[in-house]
Design a protein around this nucleic acid. Structure first.
Lengths: 187, 187
DNA sequence: GCCCTTTCAGAAAGTGACTGTCTCATAGCT
DNA sequence: AGCTATGAGACAGTCACTTTCTGAAAGGGC
């Protein structure tokens, strides 16, 4: 669709910034690197880093959920089987087999407290977007909120166990096992 | 136990700092107040505010969970009926009927993004402390993590609905209704 | 009552994340 | 080729938070 030179440059810059940042984090730790250094390594200005990622933690969390449109979300999430929808999404999304895998980024969720906090906030935002779908599916406002949080943070918990076990198994395994009891309620 | 002069002063300072902070937040908003101003209003130094509360958000979240010892937690949480334990705790704790009620503080959880984030982090920490109890109760590591997060953030969701409804009903009502489906699993 | 030790509040000087605002280059259109 | 609008960079400022040092006073032993 002739994405335009500008757009292409942006995507590329975004990628290189994140990669250089992860390189530096792996090398000297999260706190051992400043935004200025990341910007220098990626050959952009510090303000560009903020324009792309908002916060330092955003470099790692990079909020895939937020970029997903509400319509896209609606067609992924089936309000009658939210747990199943999550599983399908994890299967499709979390195992692309082309990139470096989630380990390099997700590791930091559980190693660096401030990143963990940002990850929680991202899951919290994702949960809030699911709520209206569950309400439309027939749940009360309160139960929809509880269900959405149980789902989002249940996934987070499964992810943490995946990390604690070394991160070498498929994530979907953990999600499937962990969320099985929840599935019995809402499916 | 003659709590000592020092100890008494500390408790008092802690209280006044938090109250003056809330006064200022109500007056000018969270971002409209600096730590220095809070310190001045409470007639302490800025470093004392940090010594007591760690972060600006800590002035509001003030992490009751963190101060609860692990033994205390164990006797409150029944691994065979975690949802019931939570409900009992909410009944006992969240309705003291002597203080100003939770509204004044909890309001900010949902009004100020950074406070919401800090609240999420506090619930996350609380969840992590519950995990071993659930494991001891017979759950697998993964399911324990999912259950703990479902519980903690389910409570958070119920709290949010309580806030959205104006905060004039007992919180326990929301928790009871919201978490009812979860109770069917783990009880 | 007096000393000694330990604790802890305050002062002060950083550090670095993040936010505005302005300027200038250039992609994309006519 | 010229025009315009987008957006990247530069720069200065704010403020949360850290670290370190110093002095005062609490608490305990004699």
């Amino acid at each position: 669709m002739a994405t335009g030179l500008r757009e292409r440059w942006r995507r590329e810059a975004r990628r290189t910034i994140q990669e250089r940042a992860l390189d530096l984090f792996d090398e000297r730790g999260f706190d051992g690197v400043t935004i200025e250094e990341i910007a220098a390594a990626a050959e952009v200005s510090a303000s560009s880093v903020y324009r792309f990622f908002g916060t330092k933690e955003g470099l790692i969390v990079a909020d895939e959920f937020d970029t997903l449109s509400q319509e896209g979300l609606e067609e992924v999430v089936d309000a009658r089987d939210p747990v199943g929808s999550l599983l399908r999404a994890v299967f499709a999304y979390e195992t692309p087999d082309d990139g470096p895998g989630p380990w390099r980024r997700v590791r930091w969720f559980f190693k660096e407290p401030s990143v963990r906090m940002a990850a929680c906030a991202a899951f919290d935002r994702a949960s809030q977007r699911i709520v209206p779908l569950l309400v439309k599916g027939g749940l009360s406002a309160t139960q929809a909120r509880v269900a959405a949080n149980a789902l989002a943070f249940g996934y987070f918990g499964a992810l943490e166990q995946w990390y604690l076990d070394g991160g070498d198994q498929p994530i979907a395994t953990y999600v499937e096992e962990g969320l099985a009891p929840l599935r019995r309620i809402w499916a």
